[in-house]
C-alpha cells in the first residue's frame, strides 16, 4: 500500500471540507473494499478521510412509514436491529449474509452503496425497495442513483448520510453466492410495498437493474408461477470464469422465483 495522509474528522462538515480541500482525497467508511484496493496498489489517494468517528452517520430509526439507516451503520447492526427485523425482515436477512461476521462488524451500508460493486447485495435492496438516498447536499431516488459499473450519482465531496427504506408488505432477497468468494453471482430482491412491486437484480450485470416484465406480472399475481415464463436477455450480462451470461440470465429467473416464494412464506 502506498502511504497517505490520514484524517479522522468528527463531523460531516469537517469531512467534506477535507475532501474538497485535497487533490486526491478519498473517504473511507468501513474500509472493507478500500483497504484491499489500497493493498493491491489499485488506488493511490493522497489523503484518506476516515468517516469512522462521525457519530451522526450511524444508527437506525423508524420515521413514520420508513426505516432510516445512517450511512455508517455496520452490516452487523442492520442484521440484528429489532426495527429492521420488524419492518423489513428481508433487509436484515440480506445484511446478515454479507461477507462473514468480522466483515459485517466493519463494513457499512453507505460504503457499499457508494462503491456500487456489481456483485454487492445492498444495491438490490435499495432499488427494489425504492429507497431514498440522502447525502450532505440533497436526496437521490434509487432509480437515479446507480449509474453503471462502480458508478453512482454522487459528486465529489458528496457523502451518503442516510438511506430511507419504506416498510414492506412482502419482500425477500435470494442470492446464488459464488462458491469461492461468496459474492452474489446473481441476487434478486423482490419487494411489495405501498408503492407497488419491484424486482431488482444484482451480480448479473455491470450494475443493479430492474426486471419490469416480472414486476408487471407480480403486480397482478404475486406468485412464482406468474413469472415462470419470463426470460431475461443475456445480451448485457456479465460473463467470466464463474459463469456465462446465459447462465446468469437463467439464474435471474430461478432466484426471482425463489425470492417470491420466500416472500410469500
Amino acid at each position: 500500500m502506498y502511504d497517505f495522509a490520514y484524517h479522522r474528522p468528527k463531523s460531516v462538515a469537517d469531512a467534506v471540507a477535507l475532501l474538497k480541500g485535497k487533490e486526491e482525497a478519498r473517504p473511507m467508511s468501513g474500509g472493507m473494499t478500500l483497504i484491499p484496493t489500497l493493498k493491491q496498489r489499485l488506488a493511490r489517494p493522497s489523503d484518506i478521510v476516515d468517516l469512522g468517528a462521525i457519530k451522526e452517520l450511524a444508527g437506525i430509526k423508524v420515521e413514520g412509514n420508513n426505516v432510516v439507516i445512517g450511512g455508517m451503520t455496520k452490516h452487523g447492526d442492520v442484521a440484528t436491529s429489532a426495527d429492521v427485523k420488524a419492518n423489513i425482515p428481508a433487509l436484515a436477512s440480506l445484511a446478515g449474509h454479507i461477507g462473514d461476521p468480522a466483515v459485517r462488524n466493519r463494513g457499512t451500508m453507505g460504503g457499499s452503496v457508494a462503491n456500487n460493486d456489481p456483485a454487492a447485495d445492498y444495491p438490490a435492496a435499495v432499488v427494489a425497495l425504492n429507497a431514498t438516498i440522502t447525502t450532505n447536499t440533497g436526496k437521490h431516488t434509487a432509480d437515479d442513483f446507480f449509474k453503471g459499473l462502480f458508478e453512482t450519482a454522487l459528486s465529489e465531496g458528496e457523502l451518503i448520510t442516510s438511506i430511507s427504506f419504506p416498510k414492506v408488505e412482502k419482500a425477500a432477497y435470494i442470492k446464488f453466492p459464488n462458491p469461492a468468494s461468496r459474492y452474489a453471482m446473481v441476487g434478486v430482491f423482490v419487494a411489495k410495498t405501498a408503492g407497488g412491486v419491484r424486482v431488482a437484480v444484482t451480480g448479473a450485470g455491470p450494475c443493479v437493474f430492474r426486471v419490469k416484465a416480472m414486476e408487471d406480472a407480480l403486480a397482478k399475481n404475486f406468485t412464482s408461477a406468474a413469472i415462470k415464463d419470463i426470460k431475461v436477455p443475456a445480451d448485457d450480462l456479465n460473463s467470466d470464469i464463474h459463469g456465462s451470461a446465459e447462465y446468469r440470465a437463467h439464474l435471474v429467473g430461478v432466484m426471482a422465483r425463489r425470492a417470491v416464494d420466500a416472500a410469500n412464506k
Binding site: Y6, G31, M32, I35, P36, D50, G76, P101, A102, V103, N105, R106
Partner: peptide, 9 residues
C-alpha cells in the same frame, strides 16, 4: 467486536 486486523489500519 471481532475484526480482521489485516483489513483495519
Amino acid at each position: 467486536k471481532s475484526v480482521k486486523s489485516c483489513t483495519m489500519l
